[in-house]
Structures are given as structure tokens and as C-alpha cells.
């Protein structure tokens, strides 16, 4: 008995030692930071970061910025930015997720050229967004003109105004967004029992119906994961705007996303802390919206989703 007790004790000590450092990292660099972020949202800071007092004015400023009536962020209308973030979300769901699933299905079925396409679809994961954005920017502004000239056509830049800019930046997000999604879906699809598929094919199922009635239910948990991540990304997706425009929010024109706004402002580190309290307050407000929305989406999808049985 003594040796068993000693062994269990050693095991416990080893366990505690093993998990302590990662847990400490989590406590300091996640939990503490979340609390500090909430605390900062209520603080008045001077330029050096000294806490001068506590206030709710940062939250008042947040609501003013949403309504376009802030004196601190005069030219920012965050409700419009939120609207654009939601548009991006729906486009990502409608086109991006659909394309991911369709492309993955093509690879899973090992159709013509699947090995080549598998490599190409993974390349956006390998190449930096900086690289892809530079090439893309050339093609949608200047390149279309150069290509049109080959056919005697005069084609002007596709990014004529802020709306067309927004549209083509969404297209970039979709174009450069393949990689991990295709990999995950393809992996999950390869786990579908062959017998189920063969039996359906004997019954004369078409490829499209097979996708809808057999494949989709099988990959539904993975689908739910991606949907939940997409909902959360309403508040974090930068749409690569910083890669394209850096901190020059003016260059973006009339459309941008919440994720870009948050990052661009945080990255504008000019040594003055006073603006960061407002940013933290904005983060708190967005988190209070994002958390129930994300959890609710997950619950809803799990409730209404198909079951394999």
C-alpha cells in the first residue's frame, strides 16, 4: 500500500509541476489581461499611462462613436462599420463556406486533377497575406487595364470608389481564405463510411443529393465549429485592411470592419495612453455582444442541425 500511495503522490506532484507553468501563463496572459482590459475601460489615463481616476466616460464615448457624434473620433461612424462587418460575415458564410465545402467535396471524391488542386488550394495558407495582397492590388487596379489592352479593350481600375473597393476587398478575403478550411473539411469527409455512400449510390443518388443528404450531416460538427468562429469574427476580422492600407484609415474610404478599426487604433502606438482606455471600453462593449451571440449561435445550430442517425 505504501508504494502505491507513494506512486500516487509522485504522480500528483508531477501533474502539478507539469501543468503549473502553462496555467500560470494562462492566468497572467489571458485571465489577468481580460480583467485589466475591463479595468482600463473604466480608467482615466494620462499620456504616460498613469491612472488619474475612474470614469464611465469611455463607454459614453463608445456609444457616441457608434452614432458618429464623438468629438474624439470625429470622422468615425461605427454603426456603419458594424454594418460592413456583418455584410462581410454573411458573404463569408454564403460564398466562402459554400466554396470551401464544394471544393473539399471535389477533392474528397478524387475528381480530375484533385492532387494538383489540393496543392493549389493550400497555397494561400503558405503565402503571406502581404504577398497575396500586393499581387491582388496590382491586378484589380492596374492589371485589368494591362490585360484589357491585350484585347484592345480599355478597362479601368475595378476599385473606382469606396463601394467597389469594399466589394473587391471582400473578394480578396474569399480568394485568399482557402487552405485550413479545405483541409479540415476534406479530412472530415474522408471519415464518412464507404458503405453508406455505396449504398446510396446503388439507390441512384445524384452527386448533389449525396452532398446534401449524406456528406453535410456527416461534417456538420465541423461546419458548426466554422460557423461559430465566423460569428465571432464579425468583431475581429480585419478583412486584411491593415495589410493593404496600414494605419491610414482614411485611405480605406467609406467601408471598413470593426477588427481593422480596433487593430489600427491599437497599432497607432504614439506613446500616449489616453486613447487606450476608450479602446478597452470598446472592446468590453463588443465582447458583451459577441459572447452571447456566439454561444447562442452554437446552441441554435446544434439544436436545429441534422443528425447522422
Amino acid at each position: 500500500m505504501n508504494s502505491i500511495e507513494r506512486k500516487n503522490k509522485n504522480k500528483l506532484i508531477f501533474y502539478i509541476c507539469g501543468i503549473s507553468i502553462p496555467l500560470l501563463q494562462f492566468l497572467f496572459f489571458y485571465v489577468f489581461i481580460v480583467f485589466d482590459s475591463i479595468l482600463m475601460a473604466f480608467q482615466v489615463l494620462d499620456e504616460q499611462g498613469t491612472v488619474l481616476g475612474f470614469t464611465v466616460n469611455n463607454f459614453v464615448e463608445v456609444f457616441k462613436v457608434f452614432l458618429g457624434k464623438s468629438t474624439v473620433e470625429k470622422d468615425i461612424y461605427l454603426l456603419g462599420v458594424l454594418k460592413d462587418s456583418i455584410i462581410l460575415f454573411f458573404v463569408s458564410i454564403l460564398f466562402g463556406s459554400t466554396a470551401n465545402i464544394l471544393f473539399s467535396n471535389y477533392l474528397y471524391k478524387k475528381k480530375a486533377g484533385h492532387k494538383f488542386f489540393q496543392i493549389v488550394l493550400f497555397i494561400p495558407q503558405i503565402l503571406s497575406a502581404v504577398v497575396m495582397s500586393r499581387v491582388y492590388m496590382y491586378f484589380v487596379t492596374q492589371g485589368v487595364g494591362d490585360i484589357g489592352a491585350l484585347f484592345g479593350l480599355k478597362i479601368f481600375s475595378l476599385m473606382k470608389d469606396s463601394l467597389s473597393k469594399f466589394i473587391w476587398l471582400i473578394v480578396f478575403s474569399l480568394w485568399s481564405g482557402f487552405g485550413a478550411g479545405v483541409l479540415m473539411y476534406t479530412s472530415t469527409m474522408s471519415g464518412i463510411p464507404v458503405e453508406v455512400v455505396e449504398s446510396a449510390q446503388l439507390d441512384g443518388i445524384t452527386p448533389f443529393k449525396e452532398l446534401i443528404f449524406i456528406t453535410m450531416p456527416m461534417i456538420y460538427p465541423t461546419f458548426v465549429t466554422f460557423m461559430v468562429v465566423n460569428v465571432a469574427s464579425i468583431f475581429t476580422n480585419q478583412m486584411h485592411l491593415y495589410t493593404f492600407y496600414g494605419q491610414n484609415i482614411d485611405s480605406v474610404g467609406g467601408h471598413s470592419t470593426l477588427g481593422y478599426y480596433l487593430f489600427a487604433r491599437a497599432a497607432m502606438w504614439d506613446g500616449s495612453w489616453d486613447k487606450y482606455a476608450y479602446l478597452s471600453a470598446l472592446g468590453v462593449v463588443l465582447s458583451l455582444v459577441a459572447i452571447p451571440l456566439t454561444l447562442g449561435t452554437k446552441k441554435l445550430l446544434e439544436k436545429v442541425g441534422p443528425s447522422f442517425e
Binding site: 481580460v34 482590459s37 480596433l262 502606438w269 478597452s280 472592446g283 452554437k298
Partner: peptide
Amino acid sequence: IVVAVMIIPVVGTMPATIRM
């Protein structure tokens, strides 16, 4: 904890991280 943190999005902690 892992599942919860992955699902629950926390936004805008960059200033606090810089301070830390």
C-alpha cells in the same frame, strides 16, 4: 477551459496586453 475560451470571443485586449 480550452473549449470555453475557444468559443468565447474576447475583443480588444491589445492595450491591456501592451501594458502587461
